[in-house]
Design a protein around this nucleic acid. Structure first.
Length: 296
DNA sequence: CCCCAGGCACCTC
DNA sequence: GAGGTGCATGGG
């Protein structure tokens, strides 16, 4: 325990830390596996954030119905609660989704199957860059691209003998050249990340409109952001729960389980799914996505 | 060798 | 606005 601050967060309802972090919603956490001689870090996850001009780092572990945390930031519990969806009233959300399910729908089944999976609320810029990198790429590999960016352009944070790297701010990342980013195995996404970092840095303040379609248009102004990436950034990076990103997995899932909502147009399918499940449709998407991705 | 991965930019029409 | 292509990289 080399972190100066520790604490615990009581989970008011179901919470599955592993599925929340590892289900492809976020690529901003890393897992500690522990060693034969030091098992204290086994199954802990850590991430970083940029709060009031400071780089902070925190480590979390699930223990019974508690989340235990350690950090170099005193009020890390508030950040962790927000980022892992622990502020959400999941019981109410589940009821809401099941009530609205179709006759042959599988919402109750997939909610039970992935009990405690929550929608994350990650910081905007890292989420934007993560999902620009996510196109035509397997979930597992997106993680390594993000860690490459972190380790090469982030700030080193030293806690005792351990060192962590923060995800770079737009100001830090806009200094990276396309060639440098290509060396991090970003492929054709390197130029998108470069352009978006520069334009994000150039904006003094980013205000996300409440209206979903206006918010989408704002996100799509960034290079490398189309319909699907915009929807992911809004759902996982702006504290919304009413957005439904459609990718190849969701396409498959809706075709199979919600044929009445199916369309050849992803744009139309997303809006129809959102209209059907309402204000928590992003959650309906999360359970369905995870179900179809893990059952193959 | 081929195909595909949480798609997008760019180009035609 | 609908419909095609090229795109980096690694794994099956």
């Amino acid at each position: 325990m080399t972190f100066p601050y520790n604490g615990e967060i009581k989970c008011e309802y179901n919470f599955n830390l592993k599925e929340t972090i590892e289900s492809g919603q976020t690529f901003l956490w890393n897992k500690n596996s522990g060693t034969l001689f030091d098992n204290t870090k086994n199954n802990t996850y850590y991430s970083t954030d940029f709060i009031d001009g400071n780089d902070i780092v925190f480590e979390v572990k699930k223990d019974e119905n508690m989340v235990r945390w350690s950090s170099n930031y005193k009020n890390a519990d508030q950040i962790i609660k927000k980022r892992l969806g622990l502020n959400h009233n999941l019981e109410k959300i589940e009821e809401h989704i099941i009530e609205r399910d179709t006759e042959n729908g599988i919402m109750e089944e997939v909610i039970n199957e992935h009990n405690g999976l929550r929608i994350v609320n990650e910081p905007l810029f890292p989420t934007l860059i993560s999902f620009i990198c996510s196109t035509q790429m397997r979930v597992e590999r997106i993680h390594s691209m993000i860690n490459n960016i972190r380790n090469n352009f982030g700030t080193e944070i030293n806690i005792g003998d351990d060192s962590y790297y923060s995800f770079p701010t737009a100001t830090q990342l806009q200094k990276a050249t396309t060639e440098q980013l290509k060396d991090l195995k970003l492929g054709y996404r390197a130029s998108y990340v470069s352009k978006t970092s520069k334009s994000y840095h150039d904006q003094t303040e980013i205000v996300i409109p409440d209206d979903a379609s206006e918010a989408r248009e704002l996100m799509k102004d960034f290079t490398g952001v189309g319909t699907k990436v915009a929807d992911c950034v809004l759902l996982y990076g702006t504290e919304r729960m009413d957005i439904v990103p459609i990718d190849t997995w969701m396409d498959k899932a809706i075709k199979e389980h919600y044929p009445d909502l199916y369309s050849d147009s992803n744009e139309r399918m997303a809006r129809d799914f959102e209209d059907h499940f309402g204000e928590y449709s992003g959650y309906a998407q999360a359970y369905l996505f995870h179900h179809i991705r893990t059952n193959r």
